[in-house]
């Protein structure tokens, strides 16, 4: 929700709110439940990342089958035009705060299918706001964890009590680049709740 116009003090200037916010952010950072959403090849690597070798449960990430209980959607794999609307629906069914990681070339830009295919969406960021892009085809599970660590940096700066921070964030930049410098497109113009369909 964009709350840029809301009057009142900045939340992070209020000492108690800032402490609460920091605590909440700590909780969010360490408890990113991800939606069990695997479409194609990257889905296998996503499974491997949940497996004993890489074990994203270490980071407090467990898979949830229903979008309501998930905080993080890892778009793992090719999204076709037929599927894109469903991804959007799933994203809308997730509850705020929610995050999207685009995993692999297909979700980033259409990847191998960007040039020739008539049916593949060139980049999931046309449908849902993406927080982190992870390159690879498919990315190694370690690359996924790498991206998740970057996401956690971003989650840490997310303010629950104050404004919504959806600014772009450069992984390799200085400490907090581009803080509050970004126009936020109104992704929530439609009612966020998709209604009782579950994940159907």
């Amino acid at each position: 929700m964009t709350t840029d116009e809301r009057p009142g003090n900045r939340a992070d200037e209020q000492v108690h709110m800032a402490a609460v916010d920091e605590f909440l952010a700590w909780g969010k950072e360490h408890s990113l439940f991800y939606l069990l959403f695997a479409t194609a090849c990257c889905g296998i690597e996503l499974m491997q990342a949940g497996g004993p070798r890489y074990d994203v449960d270490r980071l407090g990430m467990i898979p949830r089958a229903t979008p309501r209980q998930a905080d993080l959607m890892i778009v793992a794999g090719t999204i076709t035009h037929k599927m894109a609307g469903r991804v959007r629906t799933l994203w809308e069914q997730m509850t705020e705060p929610r995050w999207v990681v685009s995993m692999g070339s297909c979700a980033n830009s259409g990847g191998p299918f960007s040039k020739w295919s008539y049916s593949v969406l060139n980049g999931i960021d046309k449908y849902v706001p993406v927080d982190i892009y992870i390159p690879g085809c498919p990315p190694r599970p370690e690359a996924l964890i790498d991206g998740v660590m970057a996401l956690r940096e971003r989650v840490k700066r997310y303010r629950t009590v104050g404004e919504r921070d959806r600014t772009p964030y450069i992984v390799a930049g200085p400490e907090a680049p581009f803080g509050g410098h970004c126009k936020v497109p109104d992704f929530t113009a439609k009612k966020p709740d998709g209604g009782g369909g579950g994940s159907a």
Partner: peptide, 10 residues
């Protein structure tokens, strides 16, 4: 700055 998010790809 693209307003749609950040980028790990390059």
């Amino acid at each position: 700055i693209d307003d749609r998010g950040q980028h790990l790809i390059g």
